[in-house]
Write a protein that binds this DNA or RNA. Structure first.
Ligand SMILES: Nc1ccn([C@H]2C[C@H](O)[C@@H](COP(=O)(O)OP(=O)(O)OP(=O)(O)O)O2)c(=O)n1
Ligand SMILES: [Mg+2]
Length: 368
DNA sequence: TCTGGGGTCCTTCCCCTC
DNA sequence: TCTGGAGGGGAAGGACCC
């Protein structure tokens, strides 16, 4: 065991405009046109857009579909086809796994690969990208660096269809003046909190003492930010991930004001959830509901039962009890049902794992 | 123009036990 | 009123990601 294993060589592979690209594979005649994949209702959002649509009108994921349609009425608007995306994803991941031992899949279109010790990580990834293209007709972008955080940042640099290698040393120079928001896991809320204490760049973040960040963000998040400011990330690549929860939710086309209607939807959601749980043979102990009111207030209620279940009668009964106990006093925009605490231990929220995974999120409940 | 659905993980608070 | 401290686990809220 004397093989050098640090620094590591980590790759992040990310499919280009994934849903839209799969759609183009189904309908090649649309190639070259702006394509937007989104739902059909009045409250739909864009899941993704082809690069043509992005360049023409700045259309991007999570944008309200109504906005996209106004900006680019002549684009081709397509409904999501999840079975097709799952199938394409499975093909992609198969290529990865037949080439590399340590592959961590994230969602449908990304994966991290630990290439430490390989003779040429770059050649390996070039070959993999070519195989993916041959097998699926889809292109991907690859970043190779020394950690998952840096690999992910690096894969963005070459999009679309790029392959970029970047050392941490070069990254420290290159991103010195950039916003901390460049780092995956640092979103708009954290960027604002950092700015409030005089931190607007990665260099400024890197200059702060860990103790100072810990006093503002708490011990874990503070330490996490301290490391990320230095573009430092030791999070390992983990092959398997267990499902922690499953949920089904619906945003109504029009806010629901009547209890009876709400309960009808809840029963349907519970049935749908239990159907999916049964298909995956999942049983959980914590049944929860989620409600979004018309003013965007979110409320969740949950209750844990003795034994793991996915029984429709149990899930429906508990969910209805939770809804009746809460009894929303405003119109309801969204309603959802969730099951958690599968097999082993407690509710995921409280489950303490020895190796806290890389994407430490900064939750602030009572912080303004 | 008005904001999806499916997730993970974090912090806080509270009750309870040791 | 000086009322212990740590930690498991449930519950609620939130940030973030694909
Ligand atoms: N808010 C989001 C973000 C993404 N997705 C879906 C649609 C995307 O096609 C897929 C992959 O997400 P990416 O962030 O990787 O985006 P794309 O693959 O579409 O584009 P890119 O080329 O930037 O990776 O996940 C989604 O439904 N909602
Ligand atoms: Mg992608």
């Amino acid at each position: 065991m004397s093989i050098e294993n640090w620094p590591r060589s980590i790759a992040h592979l990310d499919m280009d405009a994934f849903y839209a690209s799969v759609e183009l594979g189904k309908r090649p005649e649309l190639r070259g046109k702006p394509v937007v994949v989104c739902g059909s209702g009045p409250r739909a959002v864009v899941t993704t857009a082809s690069y043509e649509a992005r360049k023409l009108a700045g259309i991007h994921s999570a944008m309200p579909a109504a906005v996209a349609r106004r900006r680019l009425p002549d684009a081709v608007y397509l409904r999501p086809d999840f079975p097709a995306y799952r199938e394409a994803s499975a093909q992609v991941m198969e290529v990865l796994r037949r080439n590399v031992e340590t592959v961590e899949v994230v969602g449908l279109d990304e994966a991290y690969l630990d290439l430490t010790g390989l003779y040429s990580p770059k050649a390996t990834m070039r070959r993999i990208a070519a195989e993916i293209r041959a097998d699926t007709g889809l292109t991907c972008s690859v970043g190779i660096s020394e950690s998952r955080m840096l690999a992910k940042i690096t894969s963005e640099l070459g999009k679309p269809a790029g392959l970029v290698v970047l050392s941490r040393e070069d990254a420290l120079v290159r991103f010195a003046g950039d916003s901390p928001g460049l780092v995956p896991g640092i979103g708009p809320k954290t960027v604002a909190r950092l700015e409030a204490i005089g931190i607007a760049t990665l260099t400024e973040l890197a200059r702060r003492q860990a103790s100072e960040l810990e006093s503002t963000f708490g011990p874990r998040s503070g330490a996490w930010l301290h490391a990320r400011g230095r573009l430092w990330d030791e999070t390992p690549i983990t092959v398997s991930r267990e499902t922690k929860s499953q949920s089904t939710e619906i945003t109504f086309d029009v806010d629901v004001r009547q209890r009876g209607e709400l309960e009808k939807h809840l029963v349907e959601l519970a049935a749908e959830l239990c159907r999916r749980l049964a298909k995956r043979e999942l049983e959980g102990r914590t049944i929860g509901i989620k409600i979004r009111l018309d003013d965007w207030t979110n409320v969740s209620r949950s209750h844990s039962v003795e034994a793991p279940t996915n029984d429709l009668a149990v899930v429906t009964r508990v969910a209805l009890e939770l809804l009746r106990a809460y009894d929303p006093q405003r119109p309801v925009r969204l309603l959802g049902v969730r099951l958690a605490s599968f097999q082993g231990e407690a509710d995921p929220v409280a489950a303490e794992s020895e190796a806290p995974a890389g994407q430490l999120r900064l939750g602030f409940s009572s912080a303004a």
